[in-house]
């Protein structure tokens, strides 16, 4: 039981850092640019596909990942320039529709280029295998590496947001946009950088997850809504909120998914408990969100509501 718990905590943490990588960009785009971007989950998927293709081309996962990053940056810049930039002054409704259109375009384009079959990415040899944790319990090295990479990005982002000029502008922009404009900062360039940064982080998440989940057309969908929940729970515009929100959502999702049915068995007969557990587990995250918003409509770390 303890082993299972430790295992699920680690899995939760791993999902958490992935969600954070995606949510961090999303929350900045929301908070600073005030743009609802439904296409953010798609970027995660594109990161996965690009990494898979580059890895296959070069024969090395590391080269694949390395080549994917500049490609992701380019995609971010182009997307911002062609579509997102025109949405800044528009209503949220327009933003929802236009980025919903982008989701359709991206999903179909991916199907045309890569087909509908899932694509596997071989595990890099360096991180293959498992290490013993406690007793008979082993954990894959690669998953630990994902956790480490995610935490490293989180620390890097924390330093950038709190100790650099760009970070100062980001923080100010999330809460007092007109002040940033009044400071004479070229706001267009700031927005482009933020969007590019968000794109790279989401693509990076898609790239590093590729060896453990095969890359497929539905991968963006599955994380997008969870990421929204993370952003809403953490508070729009708050990178710190995105971090704690991501960990919280991932833990509830993973641990609740396994222990929900077990807990149910204490009150219901096994068959009913199985159904109730399967029903409740995926809903837990949303119930958590509803509860948090009921108490704090602006999210845990949100400045605005």
């Amino acid at each position: 039981m303890t082993n299972l718990l430790v295992l699920q905590l680690l899995n939760g943490l791993q999902l958490g850092v992935l969600l954070f990588l995606i949510a961090a960009g999303l929350t900045l785009v929301f908070g600073i640019m005030d743009v609802v971007n439904l296409a953010h989950g798609v970027l995660y998927m594109v990161g996965g596909y690009l990494t898979a293709s580059f890895a296959a081309l070069t024969g090395s996962f590391w080269l694949g990942l390395g080549l994917m990053i500049p490609a992701a940056a380019l995609i971010g810049l182009v997307l911002e320039y062609v579509v997102i930039r025109r949405l800044y002054e528009r209503s949220h409704l327009d933003q929802v529709l236009a980025t919903f259109g982008l989701v359709m375009i991206a999903n179909e384009t991916v199907k045309i280029i890569w087909g509908t079959a899932p694509i596997g990415v071989p595990m890099p040899e360096l991180l293959d295998g498992s290490i013993p944790l406690m007793g008979p319990l082993k954990y894959p090295v690669y998953r630990l590496a994902i956790i480490a990479a995610g935490l490293a990005v989180a620390v890097g982002l924390y330093v950038m947001v709190n100790h650099t000029r760009l970070g100062m502008l980001l923080r100010a922009g999330a809460t007092h946009r007109n002040i940033v404009a009044a400071l004479g900062v070229p706001i267009g360039r700031l927005f482009a950088i933020v969007f590019m940064l968000g794109t790279v982080m989401a693509c990076f998440a898609g790239g590093i997850v590729a060896p453990i989940l095969s890359v497929d057309t539905g991968m963006g969908e599955s994380v997008l809504i969870l990421t929204f929940v993370v952003v809403v729970i953490g508070g729009i515009g708050s990178v710190k909120g995105a971090f704690f929100g991501a960990i919280l959502v991932a833990l509830v999702d993973t641990v609740g998914g396994v222990f929900g049915p077990i807990a149910m068995r204490a009150v219901l007969d096994p068959a009913a408990a199985g159904q109730a557990g399967r029903t409740l587990a995926p809903m837990l995250v949303y119930i958590l969100m509803a509860a948090i918003l009921f108490a704090r409509p602006q999210g845990l770390f949100g400045a605005r509501s």
Binding site: V103, N107, E108
Partner: peptide, 15 residues
């Protein structure tokens, strides 16, 4: 791949 066309129409309409 009609959804591709659809997505393009959607983006163009909003813009």
């Amino acid at each position: 791949h009609w959804k591709l066309v659809f997505g393009i129409i959607l983006v163009l309409m909003v813009l």
